[in-house]
Design a protein around this nucleic acid. Sequence first.
DNA 1: ATTACTAAGACACGAGTAT
DNA 2: TATACTCGTGTCTTAGTAA
Lengths: 225, 225
Amino acid sequence: MTSPEMWFTLYAIAGKGAVHRRVTMTTRELGAMLGVSQQTASRRLAECVRAGLVLKSHSVNGTILQLTEEGIRELERVLQGLEAVFAPPRDEIVIVGKVTEGLGEGAYYVDIYAQKFQEALGFRPFPGTLNVRVIDEESRRAVNMMKKSPPLIVPGFVHEGRTFGDVICYRVKVGEDINAAIVIAQRTHHSSDILELVAPVNLRRKLGLRNDDTITLRVVPLHRA
Amino acid sequence: MTSPEMWFTLYAIAGKGAVHRRVTMTTRELGAMLGVSQQTASRRLAECVRAGLVLKSHSVNGTILQLTEEGIRELERVLQGLEAVFAPPRDEIVIVGKVTEGLGEGAYYVDIYAQKFQEALGFRPFPGTLNVRVIDEESRRAVNMMKKSPPLIVPGFVHEGRTFGDVICYRVKVGEDINAAIVIAQRTHHSSDILELVAPVNLRRKLGLRNDDTITLRVVPLHRA
DNA sequence: ATTACTAAGACACGAGTAT
DNA sequence: TATACTCGTGTCTTAGTAA
C-alpha cells in the first residue's frame, strides 16, 4: 500500500504534467506544493523512486521526473475510486461497447475452464469468447462500478502440471434474456478496455453480431443471481 | 491545505459511501482501512472533524459519520485534479451547454464592471449575461480544464464605498467569430454548472437563441488572445 | 544555484487504560 | 463492546551544511 505522503507526492508530480511527459522541477518547488521543506521533498521523492512509482534523473537546475507505469496505475486507482464514490447509487450497471475481434486464445481457456464455469455460472460455456471494447467514458465508469461490486470467483486448479489461476467473473444479461458473464483473467491487462464474455450460446451467431456492432450489457448483482 | 493523512481518512470514509448517506463504522475498522491503529484512526477522525470535513456523532456500536459539504468539495477537487491530469493534452477546450434563464442580476454587475471589462477584454460588454448550463460530463471536465488554465483577472475596485472583488475571466469564441468571455464571480457558487457569458453583443438576439438551445464555446488560450 | 547528508528536535504513533 | 485519554518510544522533519 502506498502511504498517504507518497500518494500526495505522486499527485503533485502528476499535477505538473508528468503523466504525459517528463517534467523538470526542483525539490524546493515540490516541497512548496506539498507544504514541506526542500529536504523532506527530496526524501519523499526518493521514497517514490524506491517504491517504483517515479523515475528520477538529474539535471543542472532541478530533477527530471517521470511517472512509471505503476505510478500512473496508482493514480488511476484513486481516480476510479473517486469516480465510483461520486457516481449516484444505481440499481443497474449498464455497459455499452462494440463487438471486437478477439485474439482467439479465449476459446482455449474457456475450454479448459469449462467444467469450473459450469459449476460457478450454471451453464456450460460456448467454447469461445465475445470481445467487447468499451469506448465511452460512461461505460468505462460503469466497468469500474462493476469491479467494485462483489465478484463471482471461479477457483483455479492445476491441470497436467500447469497452474491455472482464479478467474473473476461478473454476471451480465445480454439483450433481454441471455445470461452471460464477463470474465477477467488474473494477469492484469494494463487497464484494458476490452471485456471478454462467455455465454451458453454463440453470441455472435445468436444475435447476428458483426465487428463494431454495438452491444449492451446489464450487470446482474450477485445477490440476485 | 488538507494534510495527506486527513485526505486519506476522508477518502476511506467516502469509500464506505459517506458521500450519499451517513455511515456507521468503528475506529478500529477505519484504522484497518488506513493501516493504522484504532487510536490513530480516532485521532485522524477528530482532525477531520476539527477541519470541518466530517460530521461525527456517537452510536452504541461505532461512530456515525457524514461528510460535510466542505469534505465533499475536498474530494471533488482531487477528482477534478486527477481528471485533468489524465485528460489527453488538447489544443482546444470545447464546452457544450444549454442556454438557461439567468437571475437577471448579471446585467447589474456587467454594468458596474463595464469599464474594467473594456480594459481587460478589449470590448465594451453588452449589459447582460448569457447563462449556459453545462450538462454532460465531458463538458464538465472541459470546464475543469479551463479553470486549470491561466485566467484573465479583472481587478476589483471600490465604488461608492462598496468593494467589488476581482473577477476571473476566460476568453471564449462563440460560433465562428464572436469573441466573448466566461466570467466567474468570486463567491464560489457551490460547484455550479452554470457559466455566465459576457460579449460585446446581445448573444441571445444575435444568434437567435432560446432557452434550452445548445451553444458551443471554444476556450481561447491566453497566450493567443 | 541545485540535491542530499547528519543530527537535534518535534511530533506522531500505539500500548495501556479510563470511561 | 465502544471511544479517546496519557505517555514513553520511535519516526519524521527541518536546520545546517557538504558536495
